[in-house]
Design a protein around this nucleic acid. Sequence first.
DNA 1: TGCAAAAATGCAGTCAATGCAATTATGTTC
DNA 2: GAACATAATTGCATTGACTGCATTTTTGCA
Lengths: 201, 201
Amino acid sequence: MSVTESTGLRERNKRERRRRLEDVAIDLFERDGFDKTTIEQISAAAGLAPRTFFSYFVSKDDLVLGDYAERLGRILEALERQPITMPAWDALRASFAVVASDYATEVDRLIRRFRIMSATPSVYARSLQLQAGWEHTLAAHLAARLDAGPDDPRPRLLAATALAVMRASLQHWLTTGQTQPLPTLVQAAFDQLGRGLDQDP
Amino acid sequence: MSVTESTGLRERNKRERRRRLEDVAIDLFERDGFDKTTIEQISAAAGLAPRTFFSYFVSKDDLVLGDYAERLGRILEALERQPITMPAWDALRASFAVVASDYATEVDRLIRRFRIMSATPSVYARSLQLQAGWEHTLAAHLAARLDAGPDDPRPRLLAATALAVMRASLQHWLTTGQTQPLPTLVQAAFDQLGRGLDQDP
DNA sequence: TGCAAAAATGCAGTCAATGCAATTATGTTC
DNA sequence: GAACATAATTGCATTGACTGCATTTTTGCA
């Protein structure tokens, strides 16, 4: 108990402040725009010194992306859980379903961030960069799963396609005002690509 | 003639200097790394004042990407040329074939840039950002071609997938040492997605 | 309470990028 | 070929993100 509490307190404070920074930053970004908000303003609003900001976030961009990284990491976990006998595309479909429903639970939070992301090139670029990182590791996992050699194009193709599907669905979901549930959209897109793009929808 | 020559001179000088900046920059990036090379060094090496650099390139990143934007623009032109009766995925396949062979003609130049791009997060991010821009316009074109409404997910899905295919193929081509021709790889990937990812290769 | 580790902070500095004003080069016109 | 309008180059000052380093404060534990 003492151990949990002791290390827990530091950790908790750290998480709280990180969260606070995110929150005030998002508010300011929405009010004044990303570029017109300075690190100085953000840290002041969070009650911290400017220098301290950088021990919580490596860059201003990362304020908006927050747990983006963590969330995509769950795809890999989910992928690991799929039986090895399952065809690769099916396994991907199942894994992405998990993340899709995760997303759907936090619509409001997500939408605010997405708005800022779409309006701010540097942030958008950073999000794509993160995605590219996962595409890479996802491809590595798939290569293992498919027992594919380094000159087998399939892992890369599958990873790239799956993330493209996710991104396109997410964007569609957000721009159409969430008329259809995200998981449904994602599944439909995976199905379409499973059947083949030569086929009519 | 006089007109062509007159305006031509200014334009030509401008293009030459732009080119010179690119070239010296690539050399320096390869030698010292992107981040350790300053705008000051680049402009000095090109015989220009630092301030002048920014009338040729909006950012340091763009030095590496060069004609990236222009090249992707050809996809759209090619797409316009495909008969409207051709199924969308076939039209995309044909359009991307054009760009794929374009790439293949400039392997050396391309590879140097790709190395820097892969090694430099900010540059890579910027390239993805450019691609995202094209994905957007490509989707718009496809929407017109398919006569699709704003809540039809197909244009976005097709655009995202096609660019994913291109990116994955390009990466595969470069990392496998160009053992197979790029157009072949791209066609194979398009075919695979046409047949459907549920099918075995 | 006292101590060691961790976190916060201040300060100085680098570098990309921008705005503005002044200067220089270029192409055209007479 | 000289004067002139325009475009390009340049210098200067400034902003703001980000980093390294040294110092101070806070925190959890003995």
